[in-house]
C-alpha cells in the first residue's frame, strides 16, 4: 500500500502544485522520485510527530494539500491534540497517512501496535477516517479526498486484501447477501481472513473502508439480522453502532496489550482473528440463531 500511496501522490503532485509531502523520517527513499521532481514540496522533517502535524496544519492554512506521513501509533497517539486542535478545531485541511496498522509491526511489541487511532480520530469533528484495505482503495480514495476542505485520515497496512470493493468514499460493499439472519461486518485488510472464514457459510458479508462517515444506509439494510462485527482495530464497532437498536456481536481486539512479537498472523491467531477463529465465531452465532429459532 505504501508504494501505491507513493505512486498516487507523486502523480497528484505533478498535476497540483499545492501538494506537499511531510515525512517523519519514514518512507524517505521510497519517495526519492517525488523528492527529485518536487524538492520544494518535500520535507523529511524529523522525528517530531507533534510538529509534523502542526506544520502540516500551518501549510494547510496557506492553501497547501499536505500529506503528513509516518508510523501509525506515533503520529496518531502522540499527536492527538495537534490533530484535534491544529487541524480540526482550526479547520485547516490536510491529510494524515500512516503505516504500521494494528499488528503490522508485531515483532516490535506493543509500543508499535495501533489499537485506537481509528476510534479516536473518528470522534474528532470534521475528520474523515479511512481504513484502507486494498491498494485499489488507497489509490481511489487518495484521489477523491486529498483536496477537499476536511481533515482526512488514511490508514495503510502492509497486508492488503485483493478483493474488489466499492471504491466510493463513504460507501460500504455487500460482498455476500444470502438473505441470512446473520451478517458479518468488517473493515480494512482483515477482509482477507474474513472472506476465507465465511466464504462457504450461510451468512451475509458487508465491508467498509470508510469508517467516518460510516455507510448507515447500508447498515440499515441488515438491521433485522444478527450482526457480527469482525475487526482488528477499535473504531468499526463504534461506527456501526451509530445506527440504533442493532443486535451487534463483538469479535475483535481483547482488552490487552498483545505484545507477543512474531508476525501479524501469529497474533491474529492467538486472539481468534485468523480464518479459523473468525469462522468459529460466525458458526457459533449461526448456531445460537438456529437454536433461538
Amino acid at each position: 500500500m505504501r508504494a501505491t500511496f507513493r505512486n498516487t501522490v507523486t502523480e497528484l503532485a505533478g498535476q497540483d502544485d499545492k501538494v506537499v509531502v511531510v515525512l517523519g523520517d519514514i518512507s524517505v527513499y521510497m519517495f526519492k522520485d517525488y523528492w527529485e521532481r518536487h524538492p520544494d514540496r518535500f520535507y523529511n522533517m524529523g522525528i517530531c510527530e507533534n510538529t509534523l502535524i502542526s506544520v502540516g496544519a500551518g501549510l494547510g492554512s496557506q492553501g497547501y494539500r499536505t500529506f503528513v506521513h509516518t508510523i501509525c501509533p506515533f503520529l496518531t497517539d502522540r499527536s492527538i491534540e495537534q490533530i484535534k486542535l491544529d487541524m480540526c478545531y482550526n479547520n485547516f485541511p490536510g491529510n494524515i497517512v500512516t503505516c504500521g496498522a494494528t499488528f503490522d509491526y508485531a515483532w516490535d511489541g506493543a509500543t508499535h501496535h495501533a489499537y485506537t487511532d481509528l476510534a479516536v480520530l473518528r470522534m474528532l469533528p470534521g475528520m474523515e477516517v479511512i481504513q484502507c484495505g486494498s491498494k485499489k482503495e488507497v489509490d481511489a480514495l487518495l484521489r477523491s479526498q486529498y483536496n477537499n476542505d476536511h481533515q482526512t485520515y488514511f490508514r495503510l497496512s502492509d497486508h492488503p486484501h485483493t478483493i474488489d470493493t466499492n471504491l466510493e468514499f463513504g460507501k460500504g460493499t455487500v460482498l455476500k447477501n444470502e438473505g441470512s439472519p446473520v451478517t458479518i461486518m468488517t473493515a480494512g485488510p482483515i477482509l482477507t481472513n474474513v472472506m476465507e472464514a465465511v466464504r462457504d457459510l450461510p451468512v451475509n458479508l458487508v465491508y467498509f473502508h470508510t469508517l467516518k462517515p460510516i455507510d448507515k444506509d447500508l447498515i440499515r439494510q441488515f438491521r433485522d439480522t444478527e450482526i457480527l462485527v469482525v475487526h482488528d482495530a477499535y473504531g468499526l464497532y463504534e461506527a456501526i453502532s451509530e445506527v440504533p437498536a442493532l443486535r451487534m456481536h463483538y469479535h475483535g481486539l481483547p482488552d490487552a496489550f498483545c505484545g507477543w512479537y512474531g508476525t501479524v498472523h501469529d497474533i491474529r491467531k492467538r486472539i481468534g482473528l485468523d480464518p479459523a477463529g473468525i469462522r468459529a465465531a460466525a458458526m457459533a452465532l449461526i448456531q445460537d440463531r438456529s437454536q433461538a429459532a
Binding site: R41, T51, Q62
Partner: peptide, 14 residues
C-alpha cells in the same frame, strides 16, 4: 508556534 512554522514554510514554497 508549530502552526506558524507551517505558515512561514508555506510562504516560501515556490
Amino acid at each position: 508556534i508549530g502552526l506558524a512554522v507551517g505558515m512561514a514554510l508555506g510562504a516560501r514554497i515556490g
